[in-house]
Design a binder for these strands. Structure first.
Length: 288
DNA sequence: ATTGTATGTCCAA
DNA sequence: TGGACCTACAATG
């Protein structure tokens, strides 16, 4: 769940629930207790997210920085608050609801400068208004690294995880091993625009849905609908299953300790190298 | 009831 | 490069 859209969604939710009023902050588990005491009872001024990082601003130098990692979760329920169950790292209690944070990789109190430093290490976030795709392109277009690596590099693009990576590459019919410097400018422009639209949709719905209506398996009969991860996808976690476009079994390999999924036919680099590139415009990212 | 796996990142070896 | 983190859920018995 926690790719960039999840954190932006949480930032919006927490702002709606808690911003502008005092919040009771505690750490039932204890690991965040000393820091929680410093913001307990203060007014939450605002929240924001950059990539997979979430920030709760209680003051210029009182910022709670959260990274969910692989299995961190925020849960919420209406008041009254129940006894904490399990390892609750941080509990926030507001006027109408309370929220429990569990399993996060990072939950720490930082200064404004430290928060800025975290953001300084991050690349362009497609969900932020201040994102500059030109800077990401500058990195990509001079890198020999494969796009599979570059898209997951948070210092290049912040917020893309394993699902958006696989789906974006598929939607643009790009071989995951294609070196960044071999990507054409027009392809990058199309990918960035598509990524912005896909991730905004993810913020809105809370799911990652990438399959165009014309490829809906229910309609084409290519495969049964999956929907396992709260969304319909082309490649992610579909190893061995028929490609929703061409029927070829989806391939799978371990790439830098992460699972990489792609369609060996639709995303074959052979066409491109053969120089017929102009003949097949990047797959139109019919929005989902 | 138990086991396996994961949408992420850091750190030690 | 492998383990740690230590949750949630699906698959297995």
């Amino acid at each position: 769940m926690p790719e960039g859209h999840t954190l932006h969604r949480l930032a919006e939710l927490h702002s709606r629930r808690y911003a502008g009023r005092p919040v009771a902050v505690s750490s039932p588990q204890g690991r965040f207790a000393a820091s929680a005491a410093l913001v307990d009872g203060r007014v939450l001024e605002r929240t924001d997210a950059h990539g997979k990082h979430l920030f709760h601003h209680y003051g210029p130098d009182l910022v709670v920085h959260v990274h969910l990692g692989l299995y961190g979760t925020f849960g919420e329920a209406p008041l009254p608050a129940a006894e904490p169950v399990g390892q609750v790292r941080m509990r926030m209690v507001g006027a109408t609801h309370y929220t429990d944070l569990r399993g996060a990789t990072a939950c720490e109190l930082v200064t404004g400068a430290e928060a800025a430093a975290v953001r300084g290490r991050l690349g362009e976030d497609p969900l932020r208004d201040d994102a500059d795709p030109e800077r990401a392109w500058a990195r990509i277009s001079r890198s020999r690294a494969p796009l599979a690596t570059l898209l997951m590099d948070q210092s290049v693009i912040a917020g893309v995880g394993n699902v958006y990576r696989a789906e974006l590459l598929f939607r643009h019919r790009i071989d995951p091993q294609l070196p960044g410097r071999s990507l054409r400018r027009a392809q990058w422009d199309a990918m960035w625009g598509d990524l912005v639209a896909l991730m905004r949709e993810g913020v809105r719905t809370g799911r990652i849905d990438t399959v165009a209506p014309e490829h809906d398996p229910e309609r084409t009969g290519r495969a049964p609908r999956q929907d396992r991860h709260g969304g319909e996808v082309y490649a992610y976690r579909r190893a061995g299953l028929p490609c929703l476009v061409c029927g070829t079994p989806i391939a799978h390999t371990a790439h830098a300790a992460r699972n990489l999924f792609w369609c060996p036919k639709c995303q074959s680099g052979r066409r491109r190298r053969a120089g017929v590139s102009r003949a097949r415009p990047a797959a139109r990212p019919a929005r989902s």
